[in-house]
Design a protein around this nucleic acid. Structure first.
Ligand code: MN
Ligand code: MN
Ligand code: MN
Ligand code: MN
Lengths: 224, 224
DNA sequence: TTATAAGTTTAGACAAATCTAAAAATAGTA
DNA sequence: TACTATTTTTAGATTTGTCTAAACTTATAA
């Protein structure tokens, strides 16, 4: 119907993420924080997004994204994550370097371009941070992830992603080789501070709860 | 010094192209035509570009791009042409399909991205239309091109580019296989309308003056 | 249940980029 | 040279996205 502006695309993406992939309703101030702007600006924009039927908005009641809005948001997220795959896999950037470039590339509008990029990359299902890539219809894989901090001593896990996407955290994990796909065994969990001793290939080292809380894992299974 | 906006980048690129790669001075109305806007809007923008020292501007006297402005323009042109190479060589788009996508991609700001893209593509010297790609310092190759319409009967030439970049023209040439790098022999030039009979690999066909005027060539030499 | 705090919206303003209409400058030509 | 025609600039508005400060609504807790 309407062609969203870059700003509108960014608002819709933020609302979608804040609403826990479209489910919860979101309040003005959390959008303001995430967009690094003022509540007044957000209110202005919410009225516009509502006029275009991308969100349901009632004064003082918060917003819920509509199907239409969700479609826009998922399109942007698809582009963002595909470009991140391109930047890491093809141009050999590190996983902590790609986000800001993808923030620009995600607004390049051609659908045909993203279709061919997807094909060229081999139709990847996940981005470098382990986040699922929606297909053209908005569907994406969602394997049951949980936090490494909830893992048990003696068990073996595979890293599937992170909950903290900051450069600082990603760089920190890279130093330890803690990337999606890597196998981690928990050797010991300290009672005192819930820090853990883990084994990654041949290395053994300590992870604080602060770190383990932000790593997503799944159970290790030999096949697949 | 200043960070140009996307609009400022587009104005500088247009001024650079209109000034015949920085040499001639350019008037307001030609910029307006090329930017598909009004002379009034151009005047407004010229004042801004002048304030930022990207052009020398005096009321009613036309503009000349400065060294600084030329550097900005060449940076954008470099990005545009590298993305066009990416789109044709890697994503397998046709040469008549890539321009509009490159118009968006050229404004993605990361210098490191373009550096790595350049490397990934093998440091190409020309884009799909035969236009030279500036290096990081703004230097580019410029082989002595002339129009096919100035070629002689019985001579053999190599296509190096086009002067008309419209989709319609590029599509037309693609139908005949007339792309940069292709060898063309002029069999006969008609006195009446200056149309020419040409041989391209095994095919022989007629080209109107309208077409031959817009094809750039260089003399054929067996080596190199 | 009422006061206060927290969150949200409105009012009014601003910068960037654009437009139309009118005024001013320059160019072309008799 | 003097009169038009063309080009360019100015004046005044508009749209988008933003801001601060003030007003208003809702939540919290004494
Ligand atoms: Mn990202
Ligand atoms: Mn990511
Ligand atoms: Mn182009
Ligand atoms: Mn080109």
């Amino acid at each position: 119907m309407y062609q969203p502006t870059v700003t509108e695309e960014n608002y819709l993406k933020a609302i979608y993420h804040l609403s826990n992939t479209g489910t919860k309703s979101v309040n003005t101030s959390s959008i303001a924080t995430s967009m690094e702007t003022t509540a007044a600006s957000v209110t202005d924009m919410l009225r516009k997004l509502s006029d275009k039927e991308w969100i349901n908005y009632e004064k003082y009641k918060g917003v819920k994204i509509t199907r239409k809005g969700e479609k826009v948001a998922l399109g942007i997220i698809r582009k963002h994550r595909l470009w991140e795959v391109f930047l890491t896999n093809i141009l050999e950037f590190e996983w902590d370097e790609v986000h800001n470039m993808a923030e620009e590339l995600e607004h390049v509008s051609s659908e045909e371009l993203i279709k061919r990029l997807d094909k060229f990359l081999g139709h990847p299902k996940f981005d470098p941070h382990g986040d699922p890539i929606p297909d053209q219809t908005g569907k994406m894989e969602s394997h049951d992830k949980f936090n490494l901090s909830a893992g048990e001593a003696g068990e073996k896990y595979i890293i599937t992603g992170v909950t903290d996407h900051s450069t600082l955290f990603l760089k920190h994990l890279r130093k330890y080789g803690l990337l999606p796909g890597v196998t981690v065994s928990i050797a010991e969990i300290m009672d005192y501070d819930k820090s853990m001793l883990v084994k990654v290939s041949k290395d053994k080292f300590h992870l604080s709860l602060e770190v383990s809380k932000n790593i997503l894992i799944k159970k290790y299974v030999s096949s697949k």
